[in-house]
Computed example of a mutant assay.
Amino acid sequence: MTPVVLAFLSAALWGIWWIPIRYLGTLGMDGAWGGVAMNGGAALFAVLWVVVTRVSFRLGLNGILGAALVGVAVSTYSVAITMSDVVRVILLFYLAPGWSKIIEWAFMGRGWHWTSTLTIAASLLGAWLVLGGDLSLSGLGIGDFLAVLSGMAWAGGAALIFAGGRSSAASLTLVTCLCATAIGVGFILLGKGTVFSGQATLIGSGVGAVAGLVYVMPIMVLTLWSAQRLPPATISFLLTAEILSGVLSGVLLLDEPFGAMQAGGALLILLAAAAEVLKGIGGKNKPVCRQG
């Protein structure tokens, strides 16, 4: 149960990702710069961690590719929440459990049962209720597209990390943060003169780097350590707790509404996650392609 608890904790922390990103925006770190500063700071401290503790950096191809895809997910998510409504980004990202289920079924030899459809439907319905039951998908913008891409990258990355066997969480974190930083810099370079590029300030860069140490690194370590031990769909469902923490943080800090509809949605999400977790730790339908 340890990876289950840690994944749930990391999900709660992911839900307040919008707070440092928006705060950095007030310091002039708009566009992709907020994510670059945070992920870059986390990458720097991850390098120091690996060097000082002499952690083994042995990663298989699956681990490297998986961590890189998670980095893509983190970077695109960070940019998406600066370009679209936070609630839209969260919901579109959390198509990830569906992508994970499809990956498990198509590539990992895990069966698709009626419970798979039920858990996906319950989690998505719960997300819709938590977000107020009033989310139009018309007029999708670049930010919305990035949110969907982020969820797909996360699902693929989690599957590769799980199939790649055990390795150092510090090494996976380093690869993830380096990739996330590189993708963010790519947004800045390719999006010169657009909302991608933004701008940087000395103070904002320093604050972002510190946030990388005290916030991003712990989240990454908890998430990637758990991703090695839990099936992709299981951890993706656990991470839907981010929706709950995101909404609750909005209620407390932004005075956003939370009533019976949101409470019912939260219950559906928890039930879907619990059902998937219990099935996952039960040891049924183990993947046939896992190495190591």
Rank of each mutant, 00 (worst) to 15 (best):
V247M: 12
L92S: 06
V277P: 04
L48K: 04
K192M: 11
L174N: 09
L118D: 09
T2G: 04
E242D: 14
V288F: 12
Y215H: 00
S197E: 07
S136R: 06
V5G: 02
V221T: 11
Q291E: 15
I90P: 02
I81K: 03
T53W: 03
V195G: 12
P257M: 15
M217A: 09
L137Y: 08
A68G: 14
G193S: 01
M83N: 00
L160A: 13
G111D: 13
W99G: 07
L124D: 05
G71R: 00
I281N: 05
V47F: 09
S138Q: 11
P231D: 02
L125I: 12
K192G: 10
I90T: 11
T26K: 11
W112E: 11
A241E: 10
V36Q: 04
A67M: 02
S138H: 12
L254C: 11
N285R: 05
L189A: 13
F258A: 13
V70S: 09
L140F: 00
A209I: 10
L254T: 15
R290D: 08
W17H: 05
F8I: 10
G265H: 12
G66T: 13
V89P: 03
G206D: 07
P218S: 01
G264E: 03
R290Y: 09
E242V: 13
V86R: 00
W18V: 09
L92Y: 07
G212D: 00
V216Y: 02
G98L: 14
L248N: 03
